[in-house]
Simulated scan of single mutants.
Amino acid sequence: MTRLRGGAVIAVAMMVAVTGCKVEQTKGSGGPQRTAGGGPAMAAAGSLAVKGRAPKTGYSRERFGTAWADTDSNSCDTRDDILKRDLEKVRFTGGDCKVSYGLLASDPYSGKEITYRRGRSQVDIDHVVALSDAWQKGAKYWDPGKRIALANDPLNLLAVDASTNRGKGDGDAATWLPPDKAYRCTYVAAQVAVKKKYGLWVTAAEKSAMRKVLATCPDQKLPTGGNPTSAPDRFRAR
């Protein structure tokens, strides 16, 4: 069952055949939520290309555009979109975009309850596939529009406990997993979905780690949806 937060509609995790698995690319928001049963995340992980990690040379956040660009043109920036999606008891300031308060009832990474207050937030919006990791596994060769899309795709974004998230850095599944073991299958399935959608590769150690986690949940669904893989032309990145 896909979990709903704050009354928002979360991406539909689609049941896919074990062979010919494909991540559907659709419009609209969607993020990696807790799921159980039904789909072949393991098969999708097995289909990811394996290569060595490229040098980090040339990476900067600006290569992925201005932070939290409104690529879906709903007049709210991406950060606030994800806060509205993932928090409960949301309050706004100056309209219905800027989230001033909310409750992360169960942080997916730690399992803790976290209160969000604008300006002194204990909540991060995490890129499930870190942008630096993406850069080293294919994104450095993309056109800017695709990098901007990845940085703002709800499929790759999740509201989480800031202190736990800071320990992740740009780690992949081989070097970092959520401390909350109950969320690891969903987390790894989300990384697989994002890497498959955008054509990113994985290292041999990363694929092994993904498969080890997914072996504990062989029926794990593969999240789908999110935004298109190219941002509108009006957005620019270095």
Score class of each variant (00 low, 15 high):
Arg5Glu: 14
Gly6Thr: 12
Gly7Glu: 11
Val9Trp: 04
Ala13Asp: 13
Met15Ser: 13
Val16Arg: 11
Val18Glu: 13
Thr19Arg: 11
Gly20Ser: 12
Cys21Val: 15
Val23Arg: 13
Glu24Tyr: 14
Thr26Val: 11
Ser29Asp: 09
Ser29Ala: 13
Ser29Cys: 05
Gly31Lys: 13
Pro32Asn: 13
Gln33Val: 15
Arg34Pro: 14
Thr35Leu: 10
Pro40Thr: 09
Pro40Ala: 13
Leu48Asn: 01
Lys51Gln: 14
Ala54Ile: 08
Lys56Met: 07
Ser60Lys: 09
Ser60Trp: 04
Arg61Phe: 12
Glu62His: 11
Arg63Asn: 04
Thr66Pro: 01
Ala67Ser: 14
Ala67His: 04
Thr71Leu: 11
Ser75Trp: 06
Ser75Lys: 15
Cys76Ile: 10
Asp80Lys: 03
Leu83Thr: 08
Arg85Leu: 10
Asp86Ser: 08
Asp86Met: 12
Glu88Gln: 15
Val90Ala: 06
Val90Cys: 03
Thr93Asp: 09
Thr93Gly: 15
Gly94Leu: 11
Asp96Lys: 14
Cys97Phe: 09
Cys97Ser: 06
Val99Ala: 05
Tyr101Met: 06
Tyr101Ser: 13
Gly102Trp: 08
Leu103Trp: 10
Leu103His: 10
Leu103Met: 13
Leu103Pro: 05
Leu103Tyr: 05
Leu104Cys: 07
Pro108Gln: 11
Tyr109Asp: 11
Ser110Asn: 10
Ser110Thr: 15
Gly111Asp: 11
Tyr116Lys: 06
Arg117Asp: 06
Gly119Gln: 11
Ser121Ala: 14
Gln122Lys: 14
Val128Tyr: 08
Val128Trp: 02
Val129Arg: 02
Ala130His: 08
Ala134Leu: 03
Ala134Met: 05
Gln136Leu: 02
Gln136Trp: 01
Lys137Phe: 07
Lys137Asp: 04
Lys137Leu: 08
Lys140Trp: 07
Tyr141Lys: 05
Trp142Asp: 12
Asp143Arg: 12
Pro144Trp: 11
Pro144Val: 02
Pro144Asp: 10
Pro144Gly: 04
Lys146Leu: 10
Arg147Pro: 02
Arg147Gly: 07
Arg147Phe: 06
Ile148Cys: 08
Leu150Gln: 08
Asp153Ala: 13
Leu157Tyr: 09
Val160Ala: 09
Ala162Gln: 10
Arg166Tyr: 00
Arg166Met: 08
Arg166Val: 03
Lys168Ser: 07
Lys168Phe: 01
Lys168Leu: 06
Gly169Ile: 02
Asp170Ile: 03
Asp172Pro: 04
Asp172Met: 11
Ala173Ser: 15
Ala173Leu: 05
Ala173Met: 06
Thr175Pro: 04
Trp176Gly: 12
Pro178Ser: 06
Asp180Gln: 09
Asp180Ala: 14
Tyr187Glu: 01
Tyr187Lys: 01
Val188Lys: 04
Ala190Glu: 02
Ala190Leu: 04
Gln191Arg: 14
Ala193Gln: 06
Val194His: 04
Lys196Trp: 02
Lys197Trp: 01
Lys197Gly: 02
Trp201Met: 00
Ala204Met: 02
Ala205Gln: 15
Glu206Lys: 09
Ser208Phe: 00
Ala209Cys: 05
Met210Phe: 03
Arg211Asn: 13
Val213Leu: 02
Leu214Gly: 00
Cys217Met: 00
Gln220Tyr: 00
Leu222Phe: 08
Gly226Gln: 11
Asn227Pro: 00
Asn227Tyr: 15
Pro228Gly: 05
Ala231Cys: 08
Ala231Asn: 07
Pro232Lys: 04
Asp233Trp: 03
